[in-house]
Amino acid sequence: MKKLGRLKKLFENRGSEQKIMSLFITAGYPDPGSTVELIRELESSGADIIELGMPFSDPLADGPTIQHASKIALEKGVHLDIIFDMVSEIRDQSDIPIVLMGYINPVLKYGLEAFFLKASRAGVDGIILPDVPPGEFPEVESLCMKHDIAPIFLVAPNTPEERMRMIDKSSRGFVYCVSVTGVTGARDGSEVSQSVGKFIDKVRNNVKNNPILIGFGIRTHQDAMAISRGVDGFIVGSALIDYIRSVSDQEDWIKKTGDFVRKLKYGTS
C-alpha cells in the first residue's frame, strides 16, 4: 500500500460518530525493548494512529512529562536507526499509521535526505517537527513530498486565519490543532474545553483540505469527547506517558496501559 494512503484511508473510513484517537509515546520509553509490544497493545486497545516520539535532549515545546520520557529514552541509547527498526518491525505486523514526532536537529545531523529515505522505507506515514513551522524550512517540506511522508503542521489559538489556510495547504495527513497556548501536558481538560469552542470554529472555517485532530490537555475520555467535538479526533500524549510511568515497574504494565487506553477511547475498559 502507498504510505500516504494509510492515513488517508483511516480518515475516509471513519464513521461520522467515531473519533480518531492518536496516541503519542516516546520511542524507547520506558525501555527500548518494549516499544513494539506496547504499540501493538495500543493498537489492539483502540489507537488509530501512533505518534512515535524521537527523543531530543532539549525538547523546548514539551512539558516535564515528555522531557522525562525523552531523557530516559536517550539514556537507554535510543537513536534514529533504532526507531526506524521499531517502525519496520511494526510494519511487518500492522498497517496502523505511524507518525514520527520530534525536533529537527537530530534529523538534520542524520542527513535530511537519508532520514526521509529511511523513514519512508521503514513505513513511516507522517512527520511532526514542532520546531519547523511551514515556510521556515522549505527543503523539509519538499523531501516529505518526495518520499510520500505526510508533513503534519500545527495550528494554535493565536494563529492568524490567513496562516491557518497556509498551514492547511502545506499539510498532508491531518492538521494538528493545539488546544491551548502552552507546552505539552500543561493543562487539565476541563480548563481547556471551556475556551476551545470558538477556536475550533475558526480552525474549521480555514482548514478544509485536511482532517483535524486536537491535542494538548486531554487526560480522560470525558476531556477527549468534550474537546474533540467538531473535529475528527484527538491526540493524547502526556497523560498516557504519565500513566505508563505510574505502572511501568509492574510486570503487566503493558496490559494495564491497554486498559487505560480503552477507557480513554470508549469511556470503559
Binding site: 523546548l60 515545546a61 529537527i104 514542532p130 520546531d131 519547523v132 513551522p133 521556515e136 524550512f137 503542521f153 500545527l154 495550528v155 494554535a156 493565536n158 494563529t159 492568524p160 496562516r163 498551514i167 493545539v178 497556548t181
Partner: peptide, 20 residues
C-alpha cells in the same frame, strides 16, 4: 528577510511563537 546571516539564523520555533 527570513532572518538569515548567510546560511545561519532563521525561526525554528513552535507555531505558537511565530505571531509573537
Amino acid at each position: 528577510s527570513r532572518g538569515f546571516f548567510g546560511n545561519y539564523g532563521g525561526r525554528y520555533v513552535p507555531e505558537i511563537l511565530l505571531p509573537a
